[in-house]
Design a protein around this nucleic acid. Structure first.
Lengths: 217, 217, 217, 217
DNA sequence: AATGAATGAGCCTTCATTCAT
DNA sequence: GATGAATGAAGGCTCATTCAT
């Protein structure tokens, strides 16, 4: 039993190492540019291991998306909170801030964001599952919050449009980073900046929601 | 001489055809996935032509970005208009609508959007020029408009943040299209839908700006 | 013990199942194209089982030839008949018909024919044993019959040549089936057709033997 | 022009060398076992040359079948001759002898026989073309001859069956060589032996045909 | 006796590039 | 100026086999 424990402790199971290595490489280089050999070398595994464990490069990639999601979830557990006495504005700010933190965290957490960005530009078969399992639930949660803010008379489309207006503002900083850093050198994404960003997005969106609400009448 | 004339008239110069074909292929498949052979075949040119005219695949790509920019500009000349008597809200709506139209136009115009999306995920050396020559001017123009809406007491950062809030809402529909079409099947981007979208973004942003303005006090 | 009994009763011993599966797969795909994994999967056995039980793919193949022979023998026991009062022509027809039936039987019996066809094109070490144990005895039997038909003055070579003329006509339909079915679409190998074939081969051969006999004088 | 001549003389065009090498290797090892690398090495060509010239291993193989046919044809031009005054028996013997010579010739001519043997065991897509372009015409020619021998009252099926009886006797020695050499050691296939074989097959077949003819009445 | 994981050699193919013409 | 042939590096994958359990 000691030996077993020792093994578990010392030698990471190949499959797991493969997953870790692949997440990093796929995030860095993209599906196409990443090579199986590269991944295996990084995972100290044999070239054939990928096929054995995941059935091929594509299978590995699909699993990586799930793994990256789990890693992000682990670090920034989904803000499913329904805290006791929060103003809706505060609730929105928490959502936005958590979203930004997820996007701009580094290390293993960053994988998901990078992978998803690539999926937007070049969707793979794996996207369907991700949307269904990961994005949809979050979308629902935000819609619930917005419906409360827009009032009971808001239409489904109104809610959808407002949802996208909120989400877009968060994603933008991540997705357009290369342009932002060229356009506004010095713009940073440290913890403080993220808080300021969240504050702005929240305030801007609260105003936007009010405007949209008025448009309903 | 007759033959030469005929040739000039009928057959586009190889270089130009190469550029056209490459723009389409790079936009569709991305730099890596696009193959030189594919491009040459589409351009009715020899495999070695790319190296001959552009020094290689990379050289061709750089030229393609410039070409795609020219094509987009040609079709939707920059909305530099400052029409006489428009309400600021209307002015904003025009800007937003023009932006969306550019993004969702099809054919040669679409190349630029697709190429830029890819540049966001995997910036190349060509990006610097594009930002400076293309994006910066537009950014300035929008900032001017927003400054007028936010009032003279608005800080540079306020303007910047609001600019990004506006722009992000436009880009989102283009950039996250794969998710949107999965999350909200039936969401379309025809001319009517773009007008509705522009209306929403404008109203939402006007509210946001008002909110941001108040925050200044 | 109950469990053991149950297991013995329900689950064919791995070795046997491996043999069955391998016979089918080798017959269908040939030695090279057949994969160990395919065989093991079909036998519900582990990938390593082949090496464990037979020392490798080659060892399994050698055993398969023997197994296929046993299976064929089981279904069409060798026509050792020396029936009381048959005309030699009838005796020859019985031999030919039995030969054809063996070749065109389906299921487990077909394995041998297919495997032997492959051995002809690419002989393996296993062929020697098959010739000695299986083919030689049949050859002797046919030679005896032909000697009776050719008369006592026939030379050993005459007998051999006539033997091959008879045998070749039977084998041809099996061996050249792909060409026959393309050259004469509709040519079938059902029980009736086999009887007609046997009749033709017998008549043709009886004529041939007579001709050969005359040539002796 | 001198230089061109020199080149033609010294450096065999890659494509041709590839074809030669491939014919040999495919005949020796079969389609599957043959490797592109092996072929290219033998042809002093780059590994990618096969893909460039033939579109892949399969394309090369298809071309090889045609090439092998041409080589065989070149050495033993088809006996389409209708020589002045030959007895039908003599005509048949010439056909049979030519057939045997083709099968047992060595060097480049042998390729076709080996390749066809493999096609019988494991037909590929290339077989259809071979049957149509190569086998069918020969089959027709033999049928014409046999029809003359069988008389005008012979049915199409009679002719077909007799054709197969004749052809099978020729092919047998080639196809079952591994067994023959084990069963009758010392059986050789030199020029003299081939002549004797042709004589036997012809005599045997003439008797067979007579028998078949009688069966018609 | 039997297994699941892991290995390494090898295969076919693709691709951007170069070279002689 | 332009081409068709040729190159070599690299990529994903398959397979029989081995090893520790």
């Amino acid at each position: 039993m000691v030996r077993i424990k020792a093994k578990v402790a010392l030698v990471e199971p190949t499959r797991q190492q493969l997953l870790e290595a692949a997440s990093a490489v796929f995030a860095e280089r993209g599906f196409r540019a990443a090579t199986v050999r590269q991944i295996c070398q990084r995972a100290n595994a044999n070239v054939a291991a990928v096929n054995y464990h995941f059935g091929g490069k594509a299978g590995l990639y699909a699993e990586v998306l799930r793994h990256a999601h789990r890693c992000a979830e682990e670090r920034h557990p989904n803000v499913s909170v329904s805290p006791k006495r929060l103003t809706p504005a505060r609730e929105l700010e928490i959502f936005v801030h958590a979203f930004l933190q997820r996007l701009f965290d580094e290390g293993r957490t960053a994988w998901l964001g990078k992978l998803m960005s690539r999926e937007m530009v070049e969707p793979t078969a794996a996207l369907d599952a991700v949307v269904e399992e990961q994005i949809q639930p979050n979308s629902r949660r935000l819609q619930d919050l917005l419906r409360r803010l827009l009032g009971p008379r808001s239409s489904a489309e109104q809610v959808r449009l407002c949802e996208m207006s909120v989400v877009s503002q968060c994603l933008f900083y991540h997705h357009c980073r290369p342009v932002i850093s060229r356009l506004f050198p010095g713009f940073d994404f440290g913890p403080k900046a993220l808080r300021r960003l969240a504050a702005h997005i929240t305030r801007f969106s609260m105003g936007g929601l009010q405007s949209a609400k008025k448009g309903l009448g």
